[in-house]
Design a binder for these strands. Sequence first.
DNA 1: CGGGATCCGTTACGATACTG
DNA 2: CAGTATCGTAACGGATCCCG
Lengths: 224, 224
Amino acid sequence: MTGLRRYALLCPIGRALDRVGDRWTLLILRDLHAGPARFSELQAGLKGIAPNLLTDRLNQLIADGLVEKRNAEHGVSLYALTALGGRTRDLLFELAMFGGRFAADAEVRRPGNLRTIAVTLETACQRVVQPDASFVARFEVDGEPFTLTADDGRVTMRAGETDAPDVEMATSYEPMIAASEGEMDMEKFVREHVRLVTHTPGKDRELLDLLGGAMRLIDAIAGS
Amino acid sequence: MTGLRRYALLCPIGRALDRVGDRWTLLILRDLHAGPARFSELQAGLKGIAPNLLTDRLNQLIADGLVEKRNAEHGVSLYALTALGGRTRDLLFELAMFGGRFAADAEVRRPGNLRTIAVTLETACQRVVQPDASFVARFEVDGEPFTLTADDGRVTMRAGETDAPDVEMATSYEPMIAASEGEMDMEKFVREHVRLVTHTPGKDRELLDLLGGAMRLIDAIAGS
DNA sequence: CGGGATCCGTTACGATACTG
DNA sequence: CAGTATCGTAACGGATCCCG
């Protein structure tokens, strides 16, 4: 929280890195794109970041106006992106597209939760969605519930439950990554790793098409 | 150069950060987008990065395949982006667009050279250029020469001289930043801070339009 | 029990000096 | 010019402890 080690450059890239360039900071923002989160959810998702570091980073993000702390009931506090913090979306997406070019490390540490997928998937869906698409989907990944909504072409993906979804589907993390990176073809992925829980004739195809299109887009950008 | 402190995540954002997330690394890449550079040019541009750190970062980048070391004549070596390293362009552009939202620090350190401007300007020009544009411009900023070329719609901006440019213009750094961030309006910038050295009726307007369009784009993205 | 704060060993960074 | 070597300092990582 001391804040030495800043570049203090006029260059906008330097200015950005002074806000989000510290270790963990971009990963925290990534996870917050899945919606407001508690301290412990972030800590779990980041697989054991030291709590003092998480505190430091959050305070820095709050000081810079990227994150706000909300006091919910029962003394629990929630950390949420501000509008400014939300503008990291395209940045995180480009980071994902670049990282997709590299093979995963030999010993891969699984995150404590899957909030990590939300930004990339939301951004990709946003870029391929039909302009008039509208639905609410419950999207479960390895047991963790997400809510993917399209509201007249505006897509959001958030961690957590929704009531009255139009469609419900379930899948798991590693196959999703594999299919997004061209290691598994999309047909096999959908056939073997996607389970449609409810069947609404028009809507489930719409969701599958959106998701497939998003994953194909990711593959196309990161694989080229 | 030890390389502990990696995230080792399956998440592509984590994989990217394991390559480019260390301090200075993205700034080195930024400067290399202006073309191959010698050790001392990088060191000067990064305003006094410790030489051992620069060595470490370059070696890491080489090991990861983002940078290559070329041995030029007279024993001087040049560091250059590989094709893979060049794929950081959009990432760096998004970083610049995000950083543009923040006010510069009170005491701003000027970079030792202006290679820093190349990525952002090249990317912005690329996005607004006419599909059939073609010219070679000598673009001087505070005495440092750059070469901005459009080859049938493909734009590059590199540090260094060119022979036989179609247009020559000169400007300076701080006004460029100010105009790109909406702090100075474009007309005033062009009128007071841009000097056209040669006059080629069609071409100088083409260049001014391109540059103005690029700076307006930057302002539009980062100022919204 | 969730949400941190404190402490301490380790690693990385920053500055300067030095060398082929 | 292009780095290497050294060393003090700041940041990180892990564990434990504290408080509402």
